[in-house]
Design a protein around this nucleic acid. Sequence first.
DNA 1: CTATCTGTTCTGAC
DNA 2: TGTCAGAACAGATA
Length: 285
Amino acid sequence: MPELPEVETIKRGLSTKIISKIITDVEVLYPKSFWGKKEVVLNQKVLDVKRRAKVIAIILKNGYSLLFHLKMTGQLIYRDQTSQIAGGHPSDDWYTDLPNKTTAIVFTFNDQSKLFFNDMRKFGWCKVLPQKELEEVFENDYGPEPFSKDFNASYLQKIAKKTPNKKIKQFLTDQKNVAGIGNIYVDELLYDAKILPTRKVLEVTDIEWRGIVESAKKVLELGIKYGGTTDSDYLNVEGKKGEMQNYLKVYRQTGKSCPKGECKAKITRTVVGGRGTHYCPACQK
DNA sequence: CTATCTGTTCTGAC
DNA sequence: TGTCAGAACAGATA
């Protein structure tokens, strides 16, 4: 799925579009993607849109919420009459006519605007959850948000002791350790922090943990600034691509010269924990 | 055509 | 309990 910057971009976009609207219809085109009863959310007003880690919650007036996980290829795309007319098909930013064959769920609001949940690979889901369960998921399933005070060197050092032999890349992409970091941004932040993805967490020093915290914030902030990374499937709420892929330093840059230039090394690809992993063999130790 | 890749995460085997 | 392959699925790419 999209990672934290992509999900945050969607969350911000959705907030401006659907807060205070009422859900008047829910069409489930792919039942395996929708968990729960749609009657519960019908005729409910949207009070808020929240993000935690890589999930998005639409909070409804009756206390229930719609929780989305986009996994690898999920999309949440909003359309209304104005956007349709203004957009037409002026550029390839407009994904396609909706719904399309990847559309799993269509929400309609009281002003006839629509929210499409698309998911080519069908890994993602939308769950109807009562408030209490949503709170439990938010509290129990995920570690601290990278932009919170709880995400700091001493915290990381403490939990690293539980899995001393884990590789730093796998450690940082474990959502229970830190929320929202995935395969793109972990490669980017480790390059920024000059640490090899294969380093065991036991061997990471205090100074390096501090560097990891700083680099994580820096890289994720940049991702949000550029509206996320579009490799193939990610689109924001308005159906537009992100720009962060133009600023990636190592992810999918295999064979290119290290952007720092001085080391003359080439970005190398390996596999760590079953995931494609990109790094500079000279700069990262 | 075959093999391998892909932004995620859960499960079951060892 | 830790680690790892495989699964859920649908493509694109070499």
